[in-house]
Design a protein around this nucleic acid. Structure first.
Length: 198
DNA sequence: CGGGCGATGTGCT
DNA sequence: GCACATCGCCCGC
């Protein structure tokens, strides 16, 4: 299928090219679909902020695999976040899916995110995964076939960039991309400082 | 709306 | 041990 081929080709490109192209794309799991409005690029072993910086481990193995798959990880003792693996196989590039707007299946998303406002349903990486019903069992799934799918949209006219959220390694690289003016973009929080540092 | 803080457990030093 | 690609709750403005 031409559509699938195009998606694979785009995701095989350099991570900094792929990241902005994921804005406006739709990530779907079953009946719930989210239009992505905020992402962050992670450049594999070259990037001190990346899970892949210290080489392959059991946890980050999916990052070193072929592009077009989902890398899911567990953090802060309770949250799951997910990335789109991209770039050449072995290069460990990944784009963290940080926020989006629920465009389909909003009732199920609301049930999964009980207590949250509609604006907050998928506003934040762990919230987005929860709204979509994604967990560690989805680590490694192929986004071009199966229940979890990615569909590209037209490139957005206006994209903003800035530093990534909550990182201590390479905090200054402006590798966070978001749809300018979008209400569903997550709040920016700088990384915690080390005590005694300024 | 925004800042401060505790929760909670896995992975790596 | 300790850091961690976070979140929800509480408080003050």
């Amino acid at each position: 299928m031409a559509r699938t081929t195009e998606l694979r080709d785009v995701l095989a490109g350099p991570v900094l090219d792929v990241a902005p192209r994921l804005l406006g794309a739709v990530l779907r799991h079953g009946e719930v679909a989210v239009r992505l409005t905020e992402v962050e690029a992670y450049d594999g072993e070259n990037d001190p902020g990346s899970h892949a910086f210290r080489g392959p481990t059991r946890r980050n193995a999916t990052m070193f695999g072929p592009p077009g798959h989902l890398y899911c990880y567990f953090t802060y003792g309770m949250h799951v976040c997910c990335n789109v693996v991209c770039g050449a196989e072995g290069r460990a590039g990944a784009v963290l899916v940080r926020a989006g707007e629920v465009v389909e299946g909003i009732e199920l998303a609301r049930a999964r995110r009980a207590g949250a406002s509609d604006r907050d349903l998928a506003r934040g990486p762990a919230r987005l995964c929860r709204a979509l019903g994604l967990d560690l069992g989805h680590d490694g799934v192929d986004l071009t076939a199966g229940a979890v799918r990615l569909t590209l949209g037209e490139p957005l006219a206006e994209v903003s960039t800035g530093p990534r959220v909550g990182l201590r390694g390479a905090p200054d690289r402006p590798w966070r991309f978001w749809a300018t003016g979008e209400r569903s973009v997550s709040a920016y929080r700088p990384a915690k400082r080390l005590p005694g540092r300024d």
